[in-house]
Amino acid sequence: MELVLENVTKSYKDVIAVNQLNYVMENGVYGLLGCNGAGKTTLIRMICALMKPDDGRILCNGKDIWQMDKAYRRLLGYLPQEYGFYPEFTAEEYLMYIASIKDLHPVLARKRTGELLSLVGMERYRKKKMKKFSGGMKRRIGIAQAMLNDPKILILDEPTAGLDPNERIRLRNLLSELSRDRLVLLSTHIVSDVEYIASEILLMKGGHIEDAGTTAALAARLPEQVYVCMVPESQVRNYLKKYRVANVRTTADGAELRILAAEQPVAGARQVPATLEDVFLYKNSMMRSQKTDSLQYTLSGV
């Protein structure tokens, strides 16, 4: 399975959401990472043939997806970010309905429904109405509906949004299981999700792919190093102004900072391997000295 994005462009009035985007994807798990407004959802909606590009085209095994029409949608499984359902339907009824619009024979639909309910751990809730489900349960049913037609292209937009840590881990493991022999595109702004699952990460910013590769490759290309150092709490603000700070952790002895810098920011700072989160921070933030509004950083242990 090969999906080729050729000069894909989409605008909303004066805003260019996706700008001349080119990329080739084959079987494997791709993590689409970007801040809110980076153009991820617009790109995904175009890949799902829900929205036509203003310019450029998307090819599936060499054929334009809009010309393939139904044949392309047969290959597709999609879990949208805003995932709607029918509150009065039970989980089983919902999956049987989606199976019918995916053109599955009722006998096969029943078999797949049973299998997937079991796979997502929802078998014992099959007769329960969906309006009674928690966010995580709905999300799991959402994944099951996307998998009903055993799609060759599986698109998941923010699959872990709104889930508690346990649910997220469960879902990540489930996605790893489902990702064999197909092209999976996972869009999120939660860095750790893609770090665990994706074999290739696409960093999206301002409507185009800013960088792509494995976590190691992206980290290797990072023009700055990552340092961890202890500083007095009173000096934290100065460091925030001067550097990209990935993390601030206050301890009894002061504040431990995780800093992205071209050279050692302070004597005693120790260099550590860069993570995807560091790469993401580098690509998507400016130092406070470059930006007047608040810097994006994570506060932990405060």
Partner: peptide, 20 residues
């Protein structure tokens, strides 16, 4: 379908634009 947000799944399904 639009109000509940179910339209994306509906219209991306194989029969979502004709038989459904």
């Amino acid at each position: 379908e639009y109000r509940t947000g179910a339209s994306a799944v509906f219209f991306s399904a194989a029969l979502g634009r004709d038989k459904a």
